[in-house]
Nucleic acid binder design. Structure first.
Length: 352
DNA sequence: GACGCGTGGGC
DNA sequence: TGCCCAAGCGT
């Protein structure tokens, strides 16, 4: 028999008393720092985000500092973390805060939710952690706990599952002492006990009343959506070099790697096309160097293959949608993983 | 509601 | 190895 929701929440809070999961953003009530941590942690593991959290706050200690920075500086701090729209949106939201809230992070839930890149989860997390407002922060950890415990057969990440959980916890959430601590307890419980792939049912305090455990459904809940096949894409990059400058452009379309830089790109239809791709006819080519290695980068829904060719040109020439930058400045630009890897391995060869 | 968006780690 | 997943959001 399942516990009443208030009892369930109290059990999880009780469990949390014995947990010591130290993280820097737990040590502060500064909504700015909490905001940055929450955005970094969107779809990102703590171990991966920790370094970026410290670096980002050192570079931009306040909302005002972030708003005043250039987009390029913000992107550079985010390089390697992925989901680059998050960085762009942080920058936009900082400017929203300066314009609409005099640079002070808003306190009202609706005002927080209105900021770019902040959805229901992040607004709830910030308002409960920083201000102790009674909003349940329903992330994938929390979905998993309730879906399993009560046997809610709804799809992971679906609005219906979130709504069902809100129904269950809405009233009890207002009765517990600290909403922030409760949200933290739920997230930690999902991350440490009711885990996705290796749940620790053996020492779970809720085992005896858990629906999924009793019915052997732990790994079937919440319902997973059907996996899509991974599409492959084939990029041939021409690195144009002249007078010790390199031509780069910024990715602007609604595509992967928004806001990151790249070299002159030809996208090809097939892997054979890429492997057999000929050198290109740029003007005034002095020398051509083909790098034979086929680079590969796995994204969640894509597999990128990339080949690189270096062209030394007699003179800098105007090419649309990009600009020439000194070779020494290349490392200060922001590149996707596969280009960064290529540069790290080959940049010393650029000196002809 | 479905899809696209990155990277690193676990098994 | 290949596949799944991780403190989601915007379109």
């Amino acid at each position: 028999m399942a516990l009443e929701s208030l009892q369930l929440l109290k059990k999880i809070q009780e469990w949390h008393l014995g947990i010591d999961r130290k993280m820097p953003w737990k040590e502060t009530l500064d909504p700015y720092k909490i905001w940055i941590s929450e955005v970094i942690l969107q779809q990102t593991q703590v171990a991966q985000g920790l370094k970026y959290y410290h670096r980002f706050l050192a570079a931009f200690p306040t909302v005002q500092a972030l708003a005043d920075a250039s987009e390029a500086e913000v992107m550079k701090q985010w390089e390697g973390l992925g989901y680059y729209r998050r960085a762009k949106n942080l920058h936009i939201a900082a400017q929203q805060i300066v314009e609409k809230h005099q640079g002070r992070f808003p306190i009202n839930f609706e005002d927080v939710l209105a900021l770019r890149g902040i959805g229901d989860y992040t607004a709830s997390a910030i308002c409960s952690f920083a201000y102790d407002q009674p909003y349940p922060a329903i992330d994938s950890n929390v979905e998993r706990i309730f879906s399993r415990y009560f046997g809610i057969e709804l799809k992971k990440s679906s609005a219906s599952l979130k709504q069902a959980i809100k129904q269950i916890v809405g009233t009890p959430f207002k009765k517990v002492k600290s909403a922030g601590e409760l949200n933290q307890a739920l997230i930690d419980f999902g991350a440490l006990v009711c885990k996705s792939k290796t749940a620790h049912c053996d020492h779970c305090p809720l085992q005896e009343s858990c629906y999924a455990y009793a019915n052997d459904q732990v790994y079937n809940l919440p319902i997973k959506s059907a996996k899509k096949s991974k599409q492959e894409r084939y990029f041939h990059y021409s690195i144009l070099k002249s007078e010790n400058q390199i031509w780069i452009s910024e990715r602007r379309a609604s595509d992967i790697w928004l806001g990151l830089h790249e070299f002159y790109l030809d996208e090809l239809a097939t892997k054979t096309d890429l492997e057999e791709s000929k050198t290109r006819a740029f003007q005034n080519i002095v020398r051509t160097k083909c790098f034979r290695k086929l680079y590969k980068q796995e994204l969640t829904h894509r597999r990128i293959f990339a080949l690189f060719t270096l062209y030394e040109l007699a003179a800098v020439q105007e090419i649309k949608h990009g600009s020439w930058v000194p070779l020494e400045e290349l490392n200060s630009k922001t590149f996707p993983g596969v280009i960064r890897l290529f540069l790290d391995e080959n940049m010393h060869n650029f000196i002809c």
